[in-house]
Nucleic acid binder design. Sequence first.
DNA 1: CTGAAAGCGCTTACAG
DNA 2: CTGAAAGCGCTTACAG
Lengths: 340, 340
Amino acid sequence: MGVTIHDVAARAGVSIKTVSRVMNAEPNVRDAVRERVRAAMADLDYIPNAGARRMASARSLLIGLFFHPRLASYITGIQLGAARQCRDRDYLLAAEPIEWPEVDVVALIERTVRRAHLDGVILVPPQSNDLEIVALLERLQVPFVRVSPTAEPDRGASVFVDDRRGAVEATRHLIELGHRDIAFLGGPLASKGSAPRPRRDGFLDAMADAGLPVPEGRMIYGEFTFSSGQRCADTLLSARARPTAIVAANDAMAAGILSAAARRGLKVPGDLSVTGFDDAEIASVVSPALTTIRQPLEQIGAAAADMLLAAQPSGKLDPVRRRLDIELVVRESTAPPRSD
Amino acid sequence: MGVTIHDVAARAGVSIKTVSRVMNAEPNVRDAVRERVRAAMADLDYIPNAGARRMASARSLLIGLFFHPRLASYITGIQLGAARQCRDRDYLLAAEPIEWPEVDVVALIERTVRRAHLDGVILVPPQSNDLEIVALLERLQVPFVRVSPTAEPDRGASVFVDDRRGAVEATRHLIELGHRDIAFLGGPLASKGSAPRPRRDGFLDAMADAGLPVPEGRMIYGEFTFSSGQRCADTLLSARARPTAIVAANDAMAAGILSAAARRGLKVPGDLSVTGFDDAEIASVVSPALTTIRQPLEQIGAAAADMLLAAQPSGKLDPVRRRLDIELVVRESTAPPRSD
DNA sequence: CTGAAAGCGCTTACAG
DNA sequence: CTGAAAGCGCTTACAG
């Protein structure tokens, strides 16, 4: 079905092995020969047969990214950053949505990794904290990078931001505006065990630093979705004494708070200040636009893919932890509390 | 690196060809033998080597989906529907973000299709209306399905909804509520030629049917993004006599209208009614939630993937056009106009 | 620095 | 209904 390595070799007057060396940017080829081969490739419009490369090298040239479609907004940036890196190396990113909880995540990942023979896997929250999945990938001996893991974060390679510090900054921003009664809306509580909760801890740190109490009922937990944000905000805002500000653990939930507040006729930021986390697209799309903690999502995706690609072809991945910086982005959803 | 077709054949007491037949659900195997082979596969936990299958069959077992990251919300459902179908057939969906306009879309698609040897491509708007891309895929002889094409819609296979009828329904809904001065916010005008514009035409149909005029300045065009919706709404709403309702060609722009209206202190739906199109996630996330035209995005993705998978392994794709139904979803962003 | 040989694990014709 | 042979287009050891 067209031009093969043999055609290129014949035209350049070398063996196929030499063509293979040039294709894979291997050493031990004289510059003159390398140029000759390159010219032959260009003349013939040669495209290496990916199937044959996959077969002979026992690699698939495929990186997998598993994600929950409901958290799609958080994923988009990561996916873009990762896909771009893969492109440059002739790898392809297979972003696989998981219809959780309808689907058995572990079984799906095992099946996909084995059948498609993925050369690497990027795990994002909440999968990056699922130790069963981590154990599976270790057993399958597939290199994997976890994004912002909190459960056993030293296990394997990861890319992360300092979530705790992000929560401290968001909370401090509110305290500096004059808020004293601040509530926290976190992600789901782990079903078993006591996973570290850096965003909640950061909130508590900042409150403690400022000597502010966090009374009963001021901490509540959603599912990182818009509707769970609405629901939790309803609970918080129906209390006799409402908090004047809420720190949310992601933007989707913060947007849910905005919606719940609007329904009750509360003005944001006049009656209530709200902070998000992530700086996903939704943060600037809602009204008022969210003050939030920006994560460099594209960079996170690019870094994760880089680590995986650097581990090819051996598949030996250094268990490095790479930290990227966050940033407080002040928009319209925060202001000083109304003075009573 | 583990169990191969030879191991299975030996255990089942058949030739590798028979194992291959069972794997690929081919005919001409006795039921008893088929069962014996299946049992051997299960006993040995056999997973076919995808690389070898790809090589021998000259297929990649890969379907490509190209999309603009800025239109991610529209894509998520399509991606989910398509990925699910691929899964069942041992195919993988490679969803490739295109950083348009920074990247040459045609070159990127050509490169990806050729290097990864994609077995099929799903084209969503606006790529599905780019005839240069269509011509490229025809030349490359890759089967492709276009989602909701308006430019030369009979060229090749497609999955679509009746956009024109959707716009008629949205507009009629507003007319029935009592609106008479209704504006239209469309997608980008084609840079060259006169591509059909079904949503705009549907709007005009409904207005004409009701005998309502569409004066100069009541039609405006954005880029399907939230921010272009804001911008266009600013123009529409700063006119001396504002329209009482706006029909937007997608949800993201409709959300932008909401935001622009809020900034001007206009109440939706009290002062202004707004309709979206798609029923993407953002439609139910904004406040007030958008009245919109629902497209069955997961079904669209599933149908597109189905068509592509049905064309395997020959790659001969029937140029069928498959229509899926839309539905008016009434939420909070529409109400009768304020009586003056 | 370069190359001849073997082989990756399947599928595709072709026989029987 | 079943199988023996050839071959897909590369890469991996191994020589020289």
